[in-house]
């Protein structure tokens, strides 16, 4: 048999054509997104620092023009990951819907967790939330935001967050979105191992427990902020 030389781009296209390839892309982009969510959580928790300006300094550090290249590189990578994740998910969803044109009169879900079954809904809602979140706190196009005014772009994160969450509707939406994110992460994290071919009777139960722990940690950590604001524990 002669050796067929396949161009790397063709190879990537063929790889992606297969559903397992798409799932692998979702898993890989999922890893990036999970990492970002966790880093974001660590950033958020600085609001509890005894030093009230801590979180604003952190924001100023991120927005320092000296770090602009790194910031935009990270933002681009994140955006690419989000787009790939969503495109692959949408393609799979359409393909999978087409695989059963006529549904059942009665259908039960036996073991699939609520989280697993609702990935297709928690995903878009979380995506919508992200857009809202960026418009709210990054672009300031939802509610008025303040700038400390040291540099061209040094937002007063502490004020913006607290002012925003004093609006119960905004706080409620954040909490709702975080619960969905929690579910999405729970199924998504252990599932990415399965998609990448990692499943072992000894380790998989631990992977599932760790996914749950991580997902809950993210949700509890993030939800604590609007709750703290609403209950008056966190004030400007």
């Amino acid at each position: 048999m002669s050796t067929v030389v396949v161009h790397p781009i063709h190879r990537a296209v063929r790889f992606y054509e297969a559903p397992i390839g798409k799932k692998a892309v979702m898993a890989a982009t999922g890893v990036i997104l999970v990492g970002y969510v966790f880093a974001h959580l660590l950033g958020n928790l600085q609001i509890y620092s005894s030093d009230a300006q801590q979180i604003n300094r952190y924001a100023a550090f991120l927005h320092n023009p000296a770090n602009a290249v790194a910031l935009w590189a990270a933002r681009s990578a994140l955006l690419a990951a989000v787009v790939l994740h969503i495109v692959a998910a949408t393609q799979l969803w359409l393909q999978n819907r087409a695989a059963r044109p006529q549904g059942y009169v009665k259908k039960k879900d036996v073991p699939a967790s609520y989280a697993a079954r609702t990935m297709v809904w928690s995903g878009p809602i979380v995506a919508a939330f992200i857009v809202f979140h960026i418009m709210h706190l990054t672009m300031g196009s939802v509610l008025p935001v303040r700038d400390i005014g040291l540099n061209p772009n040094t937002p007063d994160v502490r004020w913006n967050v607290i002012a925003g969450f004093q609006n119960p509707a905004v706080a409620g939406f954040y909490i709702f979105a975080m619960i969905l994110l929690c579910m999405h992460l729970y199924h998504g994290i252990w599932s990415l191992f399965q998609s990448l071919g990692v499943n072992h009777p000894r380790y998989t139960p631990w992977i599932q427990k760790a996914s749950a722990a991580l997902a809950i940690l993210v949700a509890v950590g993030n939800c604590s902020i609007p709750i703290a604001v609403l209950s008056g524990l966190l004030t400007y």
Partner: peptide, 11 residues
């Protein structure tokens, strides 16, 4: 064959 793909539901 137009089978769907696995989304790790374990059904």
């Amino acid at each position: 064959e137009l089978f769907g793909s696995c989304t790790n539901m374990a059904e």
